[in-house]
Amino acid sequence: MSSILSHIEKNPQDAQRLIGLGYPELQQLIQNAEQLHDEKQVLLESKKIRIITGGGGRKPKLPIPEQIILTLVYLRHLTTFQLLGIQFDVSESTANNIFNYWLPILRELLPSSLIEQVKKNESDYEILKEVLTDYELIIDSYEQVRERPGDNKEQEKYFSGKAHKHTFKTQIIILPDARDIVDVVAGEPGPKSDITMFRENRDSFAPKQSFKGDLGYLGEDLIDTPIKTPRNGELTTGQKKENKEFSSKRVFVEHRIRSVKIFRVVQDRFRLKPKKYEQVILTICGLVRLRIGALILPTKIDLVAFALS
């Protein structure tokens, strides 16, 4: 058993600091991930034409719980695969392979948002869109530095004048009290404006849905924004007070983004292949939802009623 898993089992209170999940959520995740893994293996076996008896071949170098822990440690701490291999007593390539095997399984298991969780069921999705109109959802976005693309047109597309670096942009929409993540759009080019990103993806919501955002969304009728300071002028005392009250309600989205960014793979320069960016971000949003209790595995209740009750 790896020292990390052994430490977590002896000191469950340290689980969140080490892997980004509380111990009960970790147990829940491992149980469901193992089940999904087994289902995939059964399906894979059913498609094989065997020349040797089933059960042969190489045995995994790590038990499944440790493989999942390895994947979570990478997401939480953004260590190198060489160091991960040393920590878990496997080779660098094995650590890399384990991560790339379990990441899509976690992604499949953990819907990143309330909308994604119900979207496969058209009737539930329509109900959710209608229920959400009772709330003024909070929206914000953030940029993350990525490696410079080799292609010149590609690097121009991702070069952010605001950050003076090549970046990805992610948009997050949450419930007013941050109880849940309602929608996530990840992996857009950093230079794309907040308001353009919103308009390109607003079809996920009912036409009458209202939002609350910062000045980056100024000019969008559906989004309530703070009062902008006039050029060469100042806000009145009343306007400043109004903006302060506005900020106290909008700040919840900043808190939720911060909970996503405790995973260093979201906070630091993104070092994996760019095509994995969306998968990684959405997986982490799913992990955050699991941690804050917005996502229960396995789901055996009315998702919409639970999330908005």
Rank of each mutant, 00 (worst) to 15 (best):
I68K: 04
L29P: 01
P60R: 06
L83W: 06
I69Q: 03
Y23I: 05
P65M: 07
G54M: 09
T53Q: 14
T79C: 02
V42S: 10
L29W: 01
F81G: 01
Q82H: 11
A33I: 03
P65G: 05
N32M: 14
E25H: 00
I49Y: 07
H77P: 00
R76Y: 10
T80H: 09
K48Y: 09
K61C: 11
E39M: 07
K47N: 15
L43I: 08
I52N: 04
L78N: 14
K59H: 08
L26R: 00
F81V: 02
R58M: 06
R50W: 11
L43H: 07
V73E: 07
P65L: 04
V73Y: 00
G20V: 08
L21D: 07
R76H: 11
I30N: 11
L70V: 03
K59R: 13
I19L: 12
Q31Y: 09
Q28V: 01
Q82A: 14
L26P: 00
L75F: 03
L83Q: 12
P60G: 09
E39N: 15
Q41A: 12
I19H: 07
I49C: 08
E45C: 01
T71P: 03
D38G: 02
E25M: 03
I68L: 13
Q35S: 15
V73L: 11
K48S: 07
I64A: 01
Q27E: 14
E45D: 13
H37E: 11
I51T: 15
H37G: 02
E25K: 04
T71R: 02
I19T: 05
L70M: 10
Q67M: 14
Q41I: 12
I30F: 15
L83I: 11
P65W: 06
R58I: 08
G55A: 14
I69C: 04
L78H: 10
H77R: 13
L78G: 02
Q82T: 12
R50E: 10
L78T: 03
Q28F: 02
E66R: 04
R58V: 06
I49W: 08
I51N: 10
K61D: 12
L78E: 15
